[in-house]
């Protein structure tokens, strides 16, 4: 499989806030390298503040990285000319978490789905309505829904509309930022099935950002686990879920509540809370909560290493 999108050494520090900028810069993402191949789904998991949404926006070029670069199908986003960037935009799209905030409340659903067609002048005006109808059908809605407004739909239907909008420009790469976490569980499963189906039919590559581990297990091919802006572990889902090597991944997997508590792994209850990304610990950022941490961990950040299944931990066996 050839890489469609590659991030190398991606770092994003948000400038210090506070009076006269005296606060510390927030180190949202530090030295993240990843690739997504054509047709592949990479799950990105982590808790709030781990920087996973920022990685999604950096990959889409919505935020300029502080360091590192993103290459999409061979073109570097940072150096692409404006015209090329527009074409690249068409090929990568975002599905939002909040099905309520992500649709313009004052415009009909059809108009919003049709935006991509008119912005990129993909179709003559007369052909846009049939295309919008086809997109609505593709995500399991009725073509006559195009004339309605967002508030006339349920959360699950809105999320389908958001997906239809993202698909309108015919993208190769989709960033799905917690696309089901605002939905009820029975609706969640419908939307996940839709995403899996579209991915298979359209050959989409996907970055699936989620904090819900079982969901990632079902949808992703590979998974990357983030903590405090860094990737702790990355590998094929089956391997990472069956044999997590990083102590954080192990704790995360064991902390997730399970429908079958009797079958659950031994629970590793992490103490304390994640440190502030404005003031991360030296060395390995996880060491302040790590059950295995020793004095070595404070000196240098462990590199993400390994073949196929990579892990950033000095203690990983």
């Amino acid at each position: 499989m050839s890489a469609l999108i590659t991030a190398t050494g991606l770092t994003k520090h948000f400038p210090a806030g506070g009076f006269l900028g005296r606060g510390r810069a927030v180190q949202a993402v530090t030295d993240v390298s990843l690739t997504v191949a054509r047709g592949e789904t990479l799950g990105l998991v982590g808790e709030s503040g781990s920087g996973k949404s920022t990685v999604g926006r950096l990959l889409l070029g919505l935020l300029p990285p502080s360091a590192g670069h993103v290459t999409f199908d061979g073109a570097d986003l940072a150096t692409a000319r404006a015209g090329d960037l527009r074409t690249l935009r068409r090929r990568m799209q975002l599905v939002f978490q909040d099905p309520y905030g992500s649709l313009d409340p004052r415009r009909s659903v059809g108009a919003q789905i049709g935006d991509a067609l008119s912005i990129h002048a993909l179709l003559p005006r007369a052909d846009r309505a049939p295309r919008v109808a086809a997109l609505l059908e593709q995500v399991g809605l009725a073509p006559d829904h195009a004339a309605r407004y967002p508030h006339q739909f349920s959360g699950g239907q809105r999320q389908r509309i958001g997906i239809a909008r993202a698909l309108a420009s015919g993208p190769d790469f989709l960033v799905a930022d917690e696309p089901v976490s605002a939905l009820d569980v029975s609706v969640q499963a419908q939307v996940l099935a839709l995403l899996a189906d579209l991915r298979a039919r359209l050959g989409l590559a996907m970055l699936f950002i989620s904090h819900d581990l079982p969901v990632v297990r079902h949808l992703a091919d590979r998974v990357a686990v983030m903590y405090l802006g860094r990737i702790m572990e990355e590998g094929p889902v089956a391997a990472v879920f069956a044999r997590p090597r990083h102590p954080y991944t192990q704790a995360l997997l064991s902390a997730a509540p399970s429908l079958h508590p009797e079958r659950r792994r031994t629970r590793i209850l992490l103490q304390g809370e994640p440190p502030s990304p404005a003031n991360p610990p030296s060395g390995c950022v996880f060491r302040t909560r790590c059950p295995l941490a020793s004095s070595d961990c404070a000196h240098a950040a462990p590199p993400l290493q390994g073949a196929g299944h990579r892990v950033a931990c000095f203690k990983a066996e």
Binding site: A189, L192, A193, L213, P214, V215, R217, S258
Partner: peptide, 15 residues
């Protein structure tokens, strides 16, 4: 229950 994703179980089914 079938719609809840289980890590090592079958794929979730919606209602």
């Amino acid at each position: 229950l079938r719609s809840a994703p289980v890590e090592d179980g079958p794929a979730p089914e919606g209602i």
